[in-house]
C-alpha cells in the first residue's frame, strides 16, 4: 500500500482517566487498505520541544465513515501536547506504516497490556469479519490503566487481569486462567517483559504467535535504521519489517 502524508481533521476526542485519550481522525482518504497492527506517524503540532513525529498504532478504523482512531497514553512532551488538540483542528499524519498482524488462526488469543491494548480493537474486528471470535485478554497494573474496555466487549470474550486485583483476575496476563486454554494463534502487544513472557509460553506450547514491538523511531519509513530489533536474522527495522513479528524470528529476543 502506498504511504501517504495527509492532514487529518480531529473529529472527536475522548479522555479516559488518568492519562489516556482517543482521537478520531477524518482525512477524506479511503481507509480500506489499512491493516490491523499498522501504525501512523503523527506530527505533534505547535510544540517546539518535539521535532520528530510520534508513532501511534491504528486503534480503530471505520472504513465507511472514513475515520481512523488512535488510543494514546500521555507519557511525555509529545503525547501531552497531542492530548490537548482541539476537535476541529488538523493533524498531519503519515500512514499507514509497517507490517500488521496476519489475522490468522481459528482459536485466537489477543493479549494486551497498558497502551498495548490499542491495536487489538481493530484486530479483533478484523477477526470478527472472518467469523472468528477471539479471546481478548487485557492487563494492567490497576483497572484504570486499561482504558476503553467497553469498546472491546462486542468483539470477543473479554478477560481482564490486574496486578492489584481491582478488576478481573489478580496477577499477570500469563497467570490468567484463560491464558492456559488451547489456542492455535496468539497476538500480543504491550510492555516488553509481558510480550516476552507470552511469546516464551507460546513457543513452549507450540502455538503460532505474533508480537508488536514499540521501538523508538525517527523516520518510520525504514530509512534511518534507528528502530532496529535484534531478530534471529540480524537487525531488522521495526518500522518497516515490523512492528508485528512472528516469534519464529525472535528466539534471541525471547531469550534475552
Amino acid at each position: 500500500m502506498k504511504k501517504q502524508m495527509t492532514d487529518f481533521r480531529v473529529v472527536a476526542r475522548e479522555d479516559y482517566l488518568p492519562n489516556f485519550f482517543v482521537l478520531t481522525l477524518q482525512g477524506g482518504e479511503p481507509l480500506d487498505e489499512v491493516r490491523p497492527g499498522q501504525f501512523v506517524e503523527v506530527a505533534v503540532p505547535d510544540c517546539r520541544e518535539v521535532m520528530l513525529r510520534r508513532p501511534i498504532s491504528v486503534h480503530d478504523v471505520d472504513v465507511e465513515a472514513g475515520t481512523l482512531s488512535l488510543l494514546v497514553q500521555v507519557v511525555g512532551r509529545g503525547t501531552e501536547r497531542l492530548s490537548q488538540v482541539a476537535v476541529g483542528s488538523t493533524l498531519n499524519v503519515i500512514w499507514s506504516l509497517g507490517r500488521g498482524f496476519s489475522v490468522a488462526g481459528e482459536r485466537v488469543l489477543l493479549v494486551g497490556g497498558g497502551t498495548g491494548v490499542a491495536p487489538l480493537l481493530y484486530l479483533a474486528k478484523c477477526y470478527a469479519a472472518r467469523g472468528v471470535r477471539p479471546t481478548l485478554l487485557l492487563g494492567g497494573r490497576t483497572s484504570g490503566l486499561i482504558p476503553t474496555l467497553s469498546r472491546y466487549e462486542p468483539w470477543g470474550r473479554l478477560c481482564v487481569a490486574t496486578d492489584d486485583g481491582s478488576l478481573g483476575e489478580r496477577g499477570l496476563v500469563t497467570e490468567h486462567s484463560c491464558f492456559a486454554e488451547p489456542y492455535d494463534h496468539i497476538c500480543a502487544c504491550g510492555p516488553t517483559p509481558m510480550m516476552k513472557a507470552v511469546a516464551r509460553s507460546a513457543r513452549q506450547r507450540g502455538i503460532d504467535c505474533e508480537v508488536s514491538l514499540e521501538n523508538m523511531m525517527a523516520c518510520g519509513l525504514g530509512a534511518c535504521l534507528c528502530c532496529v530489533a535484534a531478530t534471529d536474522e540480524g537487525h531488522k527495522c521495526v518500522c518497516r519489517e515490523g512492528p508485528v513479528f512472528d516469534i519464529k524470528h525472535l528466539n534471541q529476543w525471547m531469550n534475552e
Binding site: 525517527a218 534511518c224 535504521l225 540480524g234
Partner: peptide, 20 residues
Amino acid sequence: REGNAYPRMAETPSGMLNAV
C-alpha cells in the same frame, strides 16, 4: 555490518542523537 545495539536514537532540543 549489523551496526550498534538498540537504542540508537534520542531526540534532543531541535535535533537528535544517533548511533546507528
